[in-house]
Structure formats: C-alpha cells, structure tokens
Nucleic acid binder design. Structure first.
Lengths: 210, 210
DNA sequence: GTTTACAGACAGTCTTGACTGTTTGTTTTA
DNA sequence: TAAAACAAACAGTCAAGACTGTCTGTAAAC
C-alpha cells in the first residue's frame, strides 16, 4: 500500500524551522541575483526558486528592501567563507607567497559573487535603501578582507609602512580589471596585466626607499 | 486680445523635426539614467522628462531596448565631446603634462557619465538585448578614448613600447578607484592613490629598462 | 494626396504587499 | 502527563499600481 501523499517529516523546533526557511530563501535570492541581476530579481522569482509560499516569504521578509538587505549580509558571509576556504597551502614566504596570495585575491574577483557585488553597487547609486544596507556591510567585508590578506601575507610584508596603501591600490586595480573583463570577456586579456602587477607590487612597497 | 493658445512655430523640414525630437528624447533619457539609474528609468519617465507624447516616443524608438541602445550611442558621443572640450591648455611636455592629462582622465571617471556607463555595464550582464547594444559601442568608445589620450600625451610618451600596457593598467586602476569612490563616497579617500599612481606611471614605463 | 511626425487612449502583463485562513510548535494548567 | 491556549510559521488569493507596447486618429511636411 502506497504511502499517504502527506509528507511525514521529523519534528523540528521553531528555531530550526525558522533558520531553515530563511536560509532557503536567502540562498534562492543570491542565486537569483547571480542569474538575473538586481533588475531581474523579484520577490516572486525568489519565492519560486526557494519553493516557498508567498506567505512564508513575506513572513520572514516583510518587504523587498528587507529581503535585499538580508541577502547582502548573506552574500557577505558567503564571500567571507569563500575567502577562508581558498587559503590552504601557500608557499612559505618570499615572492612565491605574494604571487600565490595575489592569485587568490584575483580569483575572488572573477567569481559570480563579485559581479553581484558590482551590480548591487551600481544599483545602490540610485536606490537609497539599498545604498544604506550595502554601505555598512561592504565596509565590514572590506576590512575583514584586508585583515585576512594581511594574515596570509605574513607580518614581514603586512607590517611594511606602505603596505596599506599599496594593497588598497592592488584591490582597486583588480576591481577595475575585473570590470573590464566583465564587459569585454576573454578578449580583454587582463591576466597579463595582473601578472605584471604582481611583479610591480614589491617595487610599489619599496618605492622611495633609499 | 490674448494670443490664441495655439503655438505658432517656424516651419521646419522633416529632417529638422525628426532630429529635434530624437535629440530631446535622448537627452531626457540620459538625464533619467543619471538621476534614476537603469532600474529607475522607464519609457514613461523619459517621455515625461522630454515632454513628448507616447506616440512620439514610440514612433522614434519602437521598443525600450532600441531607446537604450540609441541612448548609449548618444552618451558615448557626449563623452567624446566632453573629452575634446576639456583638452585645451595643457602644459607643453614632461611630467607636468602627464599629470594634467591624468587629471583629465580621472575627472571623466568621477562624472555622472561614468556612473551611468557602469550602471549599464552591470545591467547588461543579465539583459541580453542591452548587452548586444552595449558591446560594440563600448569597444569603439574605448578605442577612441585611448586614441584621444595618446594624442593628448604626445608621441614622446604615446609611442613608448610599453605605453599601451601601462595606460591600460592606468584606466583599470581608475575604474576600480571610481567604483570604490562610488560606494564609499568621500570616505574612500582615493585621490591620494591617484596622485601616487601619477608619480608611479613613469616608473611603470621605464621598468626593466637599463 | 501621400508620407512622415506626433497625440493620447487603452489593453495586457508583471510586481508588490495586504489579507484571511491553516498547520506546527511551545507553554500553561489541571 | 494530557489537554488546552497561545504564538509563530506557513499557504494561497487578491487588489492596486506601474510599465510596455498597440492602435486609432490628427497635424505637418513634401
């Protein structure tokens, strides 16, 4: 005799239920942002992706703005985890290490998460609520990111008096390169420039030194 | 006795009428893109700004995609003129000239036109029609832009074997810096980095030279 | 008189969030 | 510990509004 259509599920606490659906929804929202961008992401789209009822969605995120804000945080956490995950076995020290760390950094600028971040930035220019939600989290992410890279590079480099500036420039360069790559695709040929930058970085650090 | 409500206007050729309204509409579209971004720009909004009837708008631009494509071209022409206009009295040569040209370049990355371009880029990632419309024009604009800067910098610098690469890096750096400034506003403090870059540029050109 | 430019009403679709009702988990009380 | 009372999570319909593009009709140029 077939099972009843009714799905029997293990009982969960409210907390578990809550976190479960919230997570499902936020994951779906990120997916949608990746696939359809900020413009193409509607609450209905998220709802469908998450396979969640309208009631559920609106219960957890009463407005689209709140959903987006929460999604940004979720996204930031994903970026953080991604970073942490991609810092495994690096060469011990010296230029090889710098090179490896820069490769890691560049990697994170070529993934979909970066594109979504750019998309959000652009959208935030004219969307006030989005701007507010993004501003704070992005600052936190940025700081966390720098701290993480400092750790990866080791004190020898990270404590250099010109490190902060040089690294900031590096990030901006990579952002620009990634934007170019985004628009022009492979034809942009930005990889060689990244490599060039890697070799220029030590020079940047010591520039002006006697 | 008051004038009739009817507006009497000088006769115009069809060509003049056509170009006139097209221009009005495109200017309005650019305004709207600057003010409200891609997301907030609707055909209705453009129509209102241009003070044009729906019929007129749809007559010249049968679909939103076509309007956007035409707007991009219009925008590109504006960028070109902006550049040409801002290249008047530059120091004759040497570092002072490089510095002045870089200031010009940086200027164009801090204006609204750049932000709109970024906005369009981001939107084009997921909007197929927009992507197609943008792809070609943007490449042309990019090349024209580089040619223009080459001319500004003069053959002494522009013909340097490493110029192309170094300048490409410069642009990417500026794009990244501009994106950062866009999100974090004045707090980003990117200007010092730009200045640093200016002084680093000659080094970049001659790097590796004996 | 024919073609092109423009005017404005309107239908159809999409999106958001409100609203009502049901189920599941938690706490209180006997 | 079992039942009752309550609270939170979830389901699904619906109305209001926004946008796009169609369509019919009028004025201006050729």
């Amino acid at each position: 005799m077939p099972q009843a259509a009714r799905v029997v599920r293990a009982p969960r606490t409210q907390e578990q239920r809550r976190e479960g659906t919230r997570r499902t929804i936020l994951d779906a929202a990120v997916e949608s942002l990746i696939a359809s961008g900020v413009a193409g992401t509607t609450t209905l789209e998220v709802q469908k992706r998450a396979k969640v009822s309208r009631g559920a969605l609106l219960h957890h995120f009463p407005s689209k703005a709140e959903l987006m804000a929460a999604t940004i945080v979720h996204l930031a956490e994903m970026r953080g985890r991604e970073l942490k995950a991609s810092s495994p076995h690096l060469p011990a020290r010296g230029r090889a290490r710098i090179s490896a760390v820069f490769d890691l950094a560049w990697q994170s600028f070529t993934g979909p998460l970066f594109y979504v971040a750019m998309d959000l930035r652009a959208a935030a220019r004219t969307d006030h609520e989005l701007r507010r939600a993004l501003g704070e989290t992005e600052r936190v992410v940025h700081e966390r990111l720098i701290a993480q890279y400092k750790e990866l590079l080791g004190p020898e480099i990270a404590d250099h008096p010109r490190f902060a500036t040089a690294f900031e420039m590096t990030l901006q360069f990579m952002i620009g390169a990634a934007m170019t790559a985004l628009l022009h695709g492979k034809a942009a040929k930005v990889e060689p420039l990244i490599n060039l930058w890697k070799s220029a970085f030590p020079v940047l650090l010591s520039a002006g030194d006697p």
